[in-house]
């Protein structure tokens, strides 16, 4: 008996060893919590193409949309922690907790790696006469209350707008906040002249800036965006707001560390591949790779800022 149990234990450990070595031995599902065709989806699919060759198995994109990403996030959070079901999320997830909409944030997951980033910016309709932070400030102080900014309340665009307005020194009370979701809806309203300021991804606004329908006010990143080289960053104009959309891959909380390491190495290798960066650049996306403890620090820092904004602008108090 003793012998057989010993053999069994040996067999189990051998099996465990081979299965750990063999990870991944089936295709990996990457859940995108937004609809096909949107910014999140495009970034995930381009990146999944880059992953080919870095990892032995296919990475399949699975769209599960609904409730601003919550449905897909919960699906991965509660999935079997084997490393075959991952989440492709941005900071919108953390904003759910900060505003009391949901009861979890990134700490409910095990982060794999942060890779793709999408620059965000503040834009204005061309006929508003605003073309930078200075003109925005002077116009708003002349006519407080007559300019509008469209944001999805308690969503990413809302936080980006608040971050920018705070850094630019414009009082939120002087600019009317209009609740509206969807980059395209906001852009159309700005072109129509119904809306003044639009926080949106740089890539989404770029064609309209090129055609002269919209003017960039500030790009919320450290460096200028390659797609809109002429648009000044907030920092250059004295409003040090940096609020890009960082796509981070997460795994369920109890995923074994070996699997996370394997995945993270592949993710970083793909992100650092120049061919991949070129592909992403065409979608006006950049790469900010981070993994391990470095990633933990970055995520904690981002969350602290989100919480700070939520507290400052009273987004939490009405939460519960």
């Amino acid at each position: 008996m003793k012998f057989s149990s010993y053999a069994l234990a040996a067999a189990v450990s051998a099996l465990a060893a081979t299965s750990a070595l063999a990870f991944p031995d089936k295709p990996i599902e990457l859940v995108v919590p937004f609809s096909p065709g949107g910014g999140s989806d495009v970034s995930a699919r381009v990146f999944a193409q880059c992953l080919e060759g870095q990892i032995d198995q296919k990475v399949l994109i699975k769209n599960i949309e609904g409730a601003r990403g919550k449905i897909g996030e919960v699906e991965v959070r509660d999935a079997r922690p084997d490393g075959y079901k991952l989440l492709w999320a941005h900071q919108g997830m953390d904003m759910g907790l900060a505003t009391g909409r949901s009861d979890y944030n990134y700490t409910a997951f095990k982060p794999v790696a942060s890779t793709v980033a999408m620059n965000y910016g503040i834009f204005a309709g061309a006929n508003s006469g605003i073309d930078g932070v200075e003109s925005l400030k002077s116009k708003v102080s002349e006519n407080p209350g007559s300019y509008t900014i469209g944001t999805a309340l308690n969503g990413f665009s809302h936080f980006a707008a608040l971050d920018f307005l705070e850094q630019a020194g414009v009082s939120v009370d002087d600019v009317r906040t209009i609740p509206m979701s969807g980059d395209k809806n906001r852009i159309v309203a700005a072109i129509q002249g119904n809306l003044t300021l639009v926080p949106t991804a740089v890539g989404a606004a770029a064609p309209y800036v090129d055609s002269g329908d919209m003017k960039p006010v500030a790009v919320l990143s450290a460096d200028r965006d390659p797609r809109l080289g002429d648009a000044q960053t907030g920092q250059e104009q004295g409003a040090d707001s940096q609020f890009a959309m960082y796509f981070t891959t997460y795994a369920p909380k109890d995923t074994p560390q070996e699997a996370i390491d394997t995945l993270a190495d592949a993710w970083i290798a793909a992100a650092e591949d120049p061919a991949c960066q070129e592909k992403l650049g065409k979608q006006s996306m950049t790469v900010v790779p981070a993994k391990g403890t470095e990633l933990d620090d970055v995520l904690a820092k981002r969350y602290a800022r989100i919480e700070e904004l939520a507290d400052k602008f009273n987004l939490t108090s009405e939460g519960n």
């Binding site: 949309e65 609904g66 409730a67 601003r68 919550k70 449905i71 919960v74 505003t99 909409r101 999805a152 309340l153 308690n154 969503g155 609740p179 509206m180 979701s181």
Partner: peptide, 22 residues
């Protein structure tokens, strides 16, 4: 039923997360 896009709060979900998508 579900998340109110404008105000970012949930309605008529009776506490079920699944209903939040509408």
């Amino acid at each position: 039923v579900g998340l109110d896009e404008a105000s970012g709060q949930t309605r008529l979900t009776f506490g079920f997360t699944a209903f939040e998508s509408g």
